[in-house]
Design a protein around this nucleic acid. Structure first.
Lengths: 106, 106
DNA sequence: TGCCTTGTTCAATGAATGTTGAACAATTGA
DNA sequence: TCAATTGTTCAACATTCATTGAACAAGGCA
């Protein structure tokens, strides 16, 4: 699966999840993943949100909180929302978060 | 209404709300208010969660984020969840948060 | 092999956070 | 008036957080 440490479903902690999302940059990352139809994205696709180093930091936070899955693929990392896990552990939560983010017009 | 500053409905910021809830103590405060049927409570009713000073700090955070309303009443402060406001601004959010908190058995 | 791309690690820094105890303010009630 | 109750404010402190740049790894590809 993945070489990087990810919390298991039963290890997800609500306060940690909320803290991870309590940052504009990380909230934007999650919002972008959702707006991208939950398709996997690479770090470089978020460069408009901050520096390379900063993104590495924020993505690690999101991964450690259990919000995203990070899967190495060649020199890239495929980042995807853990939508199913989050929906199971915190039903309705992710949807309510995403619903009140400003949507990008088509 | 109240002498303490509260953000207006249109001023509620999702990231700030999430950050405010990203702390075990504050999450417990909100959970307790919800478990108490959204009835107003006083600071002293949360003393089991921390020191007097600490609670004052955390309750200010919750108030500034727009999660609770604090209304002076004599020497006490009546603290209540801004349920209606939160439901309007972030539909489904509060419910999803509260649903996955462990409930106290009756 | 060598170079480019992608992303991480490290150390440093400044800002924000959470906790504590002492002192203070405001109201209530004897 | 005096004392008790309820909370806030303040300064101090240690911790964590977010950001930066330089250096480093690991693959891809010529």
């Amino acid at each position: 699966m993945s070489t990087l440490p990810h919390p298991r479903l039963d290890e997800l902690d609500l306060a940690q999840v909320l803290a991870a999302l309590g940052d504009e940059t990380r909230l934007a990352i999650v919002g972008t993943l959702a707006a991208n139809d939950d398709d996997a994205m690479t770090c470089s696709q978020f460069l408009h949100l901050g520096s390379k180093t900063g993104l590495s930091y924020h993505l690690a936070k999101l991964r450690e909180a259990g919000l995203v899955n990070v899967q190495p693929e060649g020199t890239k990392r495929l980042i995807s929302l853990r939508r199913a896990d989050l929906d199971e552990r915190f039903p309705g939560f992710l949807a309510s978060i995403i619903a009140c983010r400003p949507k990008k017009p088509a």
